[in-house]
Design a protein around this nucleic acid. Structure first.
Length: 512
RNA sequence: GCUGCUAUAGUGUAGUCCGGCCAAUCAUGCCGGCCUUUCACGCCGGCGACUGGGGUUCGAAUCCCCAUAGCAGCACCA
């Protein structure tokens, strides 16, 4: 045996394949098949008959890239296996509910194109939660605790029960009704789930299920006893028939806690998957930090292009498909990752490049008079790969605006793209520009930079907003017809034309 | 402090479950070239990784242990 192994080890892969082919051709088939990269999410267990999944955002602000990962991943599995996709608005903490966010979340979901089949508001379901709370108490799975949080935490860390834990079912039931009746003040009583005080993970010990909150009103309902997420989520996941839950690993402990509730009720829990933490270079994702920045005037609003919100990306011309592609590429790995804009841009470029019309944008323009140049019209293609889309007409009448940056490089000759060549002479003061023929071949042999330009008097002032700040310039008048569309400013990059009025054009830079 | 998860090129990702097709996939990025009246697109070529150390084994990216690092949780937030 050893001998054979040694012999095989000594062979090269090619020799092995040859041998195998001779001995067992049917096995060799497997070998010759090249390994293929799976561009698909890993399969989900117990999903063959269809799935019910959910996207459960907290309505505290608009959706951002972090939400998009959860939303798109779940969406992709629902599309793959068939089933229902429930949007569950988790508005059980009035402190973290922005009434305006309900609408923003819906808009963002529509933009992303999620295949949502049902919408559920947790604030509509408080009576249900109360009902199951009573049931849980009766099953001996919960008790009303009146210890203050400091004291409870100390006991928990010491693996010791608090006095309330030994209360009878009747007492707890009664106390819970008192909570609902408003007999307790804010923070004076809590319904806790009875777990295992000896559990090695302190996060698992007797976690809270309901709290009293009176200082902050809920925008949609009248309530002072609020379910905490582990309770409402467990009850809803069961009642809504959720089969699979894909969420971030920050919920791993919650999954453990929710299992206790499933256990008490004898329910079968869904299949859980927890993906790793995602950091995003260069942007704040925290809703509260963004909100603070907006309030402080640091950001213009939720769609400020320096933010990681979906609406900010939309404004820059990032397509929902690109976001989907980027997020699916990342997948559901448990590794912590840092999201790279480059990867998103590459996806977006692939989508946008075939569509985007090309135009000239001249940043920081300098007006030049070209001596001896014929007045003529340039016909520049709207898209070099699609001549059938036609051209833009640029009427040159002696003067043009060109990027200052190009002249400062002191080229001896430049070609105004799609027009003609211009020789530049430098002396005191402004350089002189002289017509130098129309030959493209000559421009090439003389290595003339081919630059973008715009006819003086036939252009529109424009501002290109980039994450590094606004870039003023001018662009072709025809760009005013591209409002809302993504164009490519030649030699600059892709940008979305946001607005245009008599004062000019406002565009947002997407990427190169 | 306690508990848990993760660790492949600059970034993302495949392979890890069931050790040998892996001197490790694909994409992006970067570099070089070609194409091109854009520094875009396309094409060609190149760069670049199994966290470290032990162990098991004929053989380890893959299994085990330890270490290290990162992350998460231990809220009357989600």
């Amino acid at each position: 045996m050893d001998e054979v192994i040694r012999e095989v080890s000594g062979l090269s892969p090619a020799q092995r394949e040859e041998q195998l082919r001779a001995l067992a051709p049917e096995l060799a088939e497997d070998i010759s098949r090249p390994r293929e990269h799976t561009r698909e999410l890993p399969p989900l267990e117990k999903a063959e008959g269809g799935v019910v999944m959910r996207f459960a955002p907290n309505p505290s602000g608009p959706l951002h890239l972090g939400h998009a990962r959860a939303a798109v991943l779940n969406d992709a599995y629902v599309r793959r296996y068939g089933g229902r996709y429930i949007l569950r608005i988790e508005d059980t903490d009035p402190k973290r509910v922005d009434p305006l966010a309900y609408a923003m979340v819906r808009e963002d979901i529509e933009w992303l194109g999620l295949a949502i089949s049902d919408i559920v508001y947790q604030s509509d379901r408080f009576e249900t939660y109360y009902r199951y709370a009573r049931e849980l108490i009766q099953r001996g799975g919960a008790y009303v605790c009146t210890c203050d949080s400091e004291r409870f935490k100390a006991l928990k860390m010491a693996k010791k029960p608090c006095p309330c834990r030994e209360k009878s079912l009747e007492d707890s039931l009664h106390a819970f009704e008192e909570m609902l009746a408003g007999s307790y003040g804010e923070g004076e009583a809590t319904l806790r789930v009875k777990t295992d005080l000896a559990h090695p993970d302190p996060a698992m010990r007797d976690f809270p299920a309901f709290r009293i909150l009176k200082s902050v009103p809920h925008p949609r309902i009248e309530a002072s006893v609020y379910p905490l997420m582990n309770f409402s989520v467990a009850v809803d996941d069961h009642l809504l028939g959720i089969t699979h839950v894909i969420r971030g690993k920050d919920h791993i402990a919650n999954t453990g806690r929710q299992r206790y509730i499933f256990e008490y009720f004898g329910w079968e829990p869904p299949v859980y998957r927890h993906y790793g933490r995602m950091g995003i270079e260069g942007v704040v994702l925290s809703t509260s930090q963004m909100r603070a920045g907006i309030a402080a005037g640091e950001y213009q609003g939720w769609d400020d292009i320096r933010l990681g919100t979906l609406r900010a990306m939309a404004r820059r011309g990032i397509t929902p498909q690109a976001v989907r592609d980027a997020v699916l590429e990342i997948g559901i790995g448990e590794t912590d990752i840092s999201f790279s804009w480059e990867n998103l841009y590459a996806h977006n470029r692939a989508i946008v490049d075939p569509k985007a019309n090309r135009y000239f944008f001249v940043p920081d323009p300098v007006e030049v008079t070209v001596e001896g140049a014929p007045h003529q019209t340039a016909h520049a293609l709207l898209h070099p790969a699609h001549p059938e889309r036609g051209t833009r007409q640029l009427h040159f009448a002696g003067k043009a605006l060109v990027p200052r940056e190009e002249i400062e490089k002191r080229p001896s000759i430049v070609r105004l793209k799609d027009l003609f060549n211009v020789e530049v002479q430098y002396g005191e003061g402004t350089p002189r520009f002289r017509f130098a023929g129309e030959s493209l071949a000559e421009a090439r042999t003389r290595k003339a930079p081919i630059i973008q330009w715009v006819p003086a008097g036939e252009c529109v002032p424009a501002v290109l907003y980039t994450p590094d700040g606004p870039r003023p310039g001018v662009c072709e008048r025809a760009v005013t017809r591209e409002i809302g569309a993504v164009v490519q400013f030649e030699r600059i990059g892709f940008a979305r034309i946001d607005t245009a009025d008599e004062k000019g054009i406002f565009a947002y830079f997407a990427h190169r």
